[in-house]
Design a protein around this nucleic acid. Structure first.
Lengths: 198, 198
DNA sequence: AAAGTAAGTAAATATTTATTTACTAATGAA
DNA sequence: TTCATTAGTAAATAAATATTTACTTACTTT
């Protein structure tokens, strides 16, 4: 039996992300992808059932899972509140700024119904993903350090301003002065911490 | 000369928003839109140059402009900081929660290259839109009340957690307990204010 | 080394899609 | 009223697109 050529699978994944990052999800076509990956369209269908399957698998396996790993790198649910916030901001900022496809696909996850559904099913919001962050927040709620509000509220305050800033970083990469400097990062962390602490 | 039938133009706009809200931007087709609006596909091309023109005009005229008006309703750049935050949160939450198409299209504005470009060109980020908010922030920076950081940073902290919560509101509308309650709103405003004030 | 088998290809297909063509309808100006 | 003109329609078209068909290739097993 002829063995799988893993290089081709890598090429499919890599070019899928590249096209989405550069031209958007709506401009990804199977023929364009095949040409970019230097393979026949048929080959994509050997590895994936159809286009939807391709998108979902890549979203889950190449984006969500790597994203979680990167965000939680060196983070522990036993960290104190300020230290945790700083760690999460550093990790997230570094990962997203150096992985445009990840950022773009995470944004599509908030608009495209297909990817949004995957988000929900994978329960990224509820704790299947990012469990350590939830337990860390829960611990500080119980200790009376931060307010007793739904998890979603804490999550919203914790990282969504950063996503907005990363968007600025990419959209205005021709800006004379970069937006996310170490000084800005430090001040942002202070603002998050101050806002969330009781 | 036969006069324009404004009802048909209204129908096009209304059904465009409806389809995007319910099925997503990627599932809006000209024939589907024509059928939903009960007109011939050709009629769309009498009002709009092509699909891109339709999307951009609707995004700018039906979404961005209404959004700005709604967010700034009763807001004045002379307001004190806490009062301004509360006003902006109330306005934005109320408008987006009762206008799903608006929210969905604003989200697409962050992922779709086409709409993102419009965002940039219209300078929603830089002050052509939301000028009063910028001047209000600027005034409080100069008064030494909030930090001296780039406008983008303040804007990110001001409203992006709310957009996250509105997303929760729509995605989990089958949730037993609604997420955005008056109590949550009040506490969120307190968190934003506390975080941003020096 | 020959057979068997899945991997892979080039080209075709059937469908969908944006846009146009060729026509009809309705109204204000003359 | 009749003409000129734009609004509007139904059906066609041409291009694009996801997916398949029919075939070839290359490797493992025997």
């Amino acid at each position: 039996m002829r063995p799988r050529n893993f290089d081709k699978e890598d090429a499919i994944r890599e070019m899928t992300l590249k096209i989405i990052a550069e031209e958007g999800l709506e401009n990804l076509t199977m023929q364009k992808l095949a040409k970019a990956a230097n393979i026949s369209p048929r080959t994509i269908y050997i590895k994936y059932e159809n286009k939807e399957d391709l998108l979902i698998k890549i979203f889950v396996e190449e984006i969500l899972e790597f994203y979680e790993t990167a965000v939680l790198w060196g983070f522990s649910e036993t960290m104190d509140f300020a230290g945790g916030v700083q760690k999460l901001w550093q990790n997230t900022a570094f990962y997203l700024m150096s992985n445009r496809p990840s950022f773009v696909l995470m944004q599509y996850g908030k608009s495209s119904p297909l990817l949004n559904k995957v988000f929900q099913e994978k329960n990224i919001q509820q704790g299947q993903y990012f469990g350590p962050i939830h337990r860390w927040l829960q611990r500080h709620i119980e200790a009376g350090l931060i307010r007793d509000l739904p998890m979603e509220v804490h999550r919203a305050f914790l990282l969504s301003p950063l996503l907005d800033l990363v968007n600025e970083y990419f959209e205005y990469s021709d800006r004379p002065v970069q937006i996310i400097t170490p000084k800005v990062m430090a001040e942002c962390c202070e603002m998050v911490i101050k806002g969330m602490l009781k």
